[in-house]
Amino acid sequence: MEEKLVQAPIPRGLQKVLGVEPQRSSRAAAFTEAFLASSLQQPDNQDLKNLLTHKAVILGYTRPKKQRTKRSSKKAKGLTAQQKKALKVFQIRPEHQRYQLFLPLHDLWRQYVRDLCGGLRPSCSPQFVQQKLLKADLHGAIITVVRSKCPSYVGLSGILLQEFKHVFKIITAEDRLKVIPKRNSVFSVEIDGFVSHIFGSRFEQRASERSAKKFKVHGSIDL
Results as ranks from 00 to 15, higher is better:
residue 179 V to W: 07
residue 4 K to V: 07
residue 140 G to E: 00
residue 189 V to K: 00
residue 27 R to W: 03
residue 162 Q to H: 07
residue 78 G to R: 11
residue 157 S to L: 01
residue 6 V to C: 02
residue 209 E to A: 11
residue 202 R to K: 12
residue 214 K to L: 10
residue 69 T to Y: 05
residue 143 I to V: 13
residue 174 E to K: 12
residue 203 F to W: 11
residue 11 P to V: 11
residue 212 A to D: 14
residue 71 R to A: 12
residue 33 E to Q: 01
residue 134 L to E: 15
residue 177 L to N: 05
residue 161 L to A: 10
residue 10 I to Q: 05
residue 11 P to S: 07
residue 7 Q to L: 02
residue 157 S to C: 11
residue 144 T to D: 15
residue 143 I to F: 07
residue 167 V to G: 00
residue 29 A to N: 01
residue 218 H to W: 06
residue 100 Q to M: 10
residue 222 D to A: 13
residue 118 G to C: 12
residue 78 G to Q: 11
residue 152 S to H: 13
residue 93 R to S: 15
residue 51 L to G: 02
residue 184 N to C: 12
residue 169 K to G: 00
residue 132 K to R: 15
residue 109 W to Q: 10
residue 47 D to C: 09
residue 114 R to T: 09
residue 129 V to L: 07
residue 116 L to H: 03
residue 120 L to G: 09
residue 215 F to W: 05
residue 130 Q to D: 12
residue 221 I to S: 05
residue 73 S to V: 10
residue 99 Y to I: 07
residue 212 A to L: 08
residue 24 R to P: 01
residue 28 A to P: 02
residue 183 R to Q: 13
residue 30 A to H: 02
residue 45 N to K: 01
residue 139 H to C: 14
residue 137 D to A: 01
residue 80 T to R: 11
residue 150 C to G: 02
residue 41 Q to P: 03
residue 108 L to Y: 06
residue 65 K to E: 15
residue 105 L to W: 04
residue 43 P to Y: 10
residue 136 A to K: 08
residue 125 S to D: 12
residue 149 K to G: 14
residue 120 L to H: 09
residue 24 R to G: 03
residue 93 R to H: 15
residue 167 V to C: 07
residue 171 I to D: 03
residue 85 K to F: 04
residue 192 D to M: 04
residue 34 A to I: 03
residue 152 S to N: 05
residue 179 V to D: 07
residue 116 L to F: 00
residue 142 I to T: 11
residue 32 T to H: 01
residue 25 S to V: 02
residue 79 L to P: 02
residue 138 L to P: 00
residue 180 I to D: 12
residue 152 S to Q: 10
residue 94 P to A: 11
residue 110 R to W: 04
residue 6 V to P: 02
residue 200 G to I: 12
residue 149 K to V: 10
residue 197 H to Y: 12
residue 208 S to V: 08
residue 197 H to T: 07
residue 71 R to V: 06
residue 37 A to Q: 15
residue 115 D to W: 06
residue 142 I to F: 04
residue 127 Q to P: 02
residue 102 F to C: 04
residue 75 K to H: 15
residue 20 V to D: 00
residue 8 A to V: 04
residue 132 K to D: 06
residue 52 L to G: 04
residue 142 I to L: 08
residue 82 Q to N: 13
residue 134 L to K: 11
residue 120 L to N: 14
residue 39 S to L: 10
residue 47 D to R: 04
residue 42 Q to M: 12
residue 191 I to K: 01
residue 185 S to T: 08
residue 215 F to N: 09
residue 50 N to W: 12
residue 168 F to G: 01
residue 80 T to M: 04
residue 135 K to E: 14
residue 14 L to S: 07
residue 121 R to V: 10
residue 163 E to Q: 15
residue 8 A to P: 04
residue 37 A to E: 06
residue 201 S to E: 15
residue 48 L to F: 03
residue 69 T to M: 06
residue 97 Q to D: 08
residue 30 A to Q: 10
residue 133 L to Q: 05
residue 184 N to P: 02
residue 94 P to M: 09
residue 168 F to I: 02
residue 66 K to I: 05
residue 118 G to L: 09
residue 83 Q to T: 06
residue 135 K to R: 07
residue 32 T to K: 00
residue 35 F to M: 04
residue 66 K to L: 06
residue 190 E to D: 13
residue 121 R to F: 07
residue 99 Y to W: 12
residue 44 D to R: 15
residue 139 H to M: 14
residue 156 L to T: 07
residue 174 E to D: 15
residue 211 S to K: 09
residue 156 L to A: 01
residue 147 R to L: 13
residue 5 L to T: 08
residue 20 V to I: 13
residue 125 S to T: 06
residue 210 R to I: 13
residue 142 I to W: 03
residue 58 I to W: 10
residue 3 E to P: 02
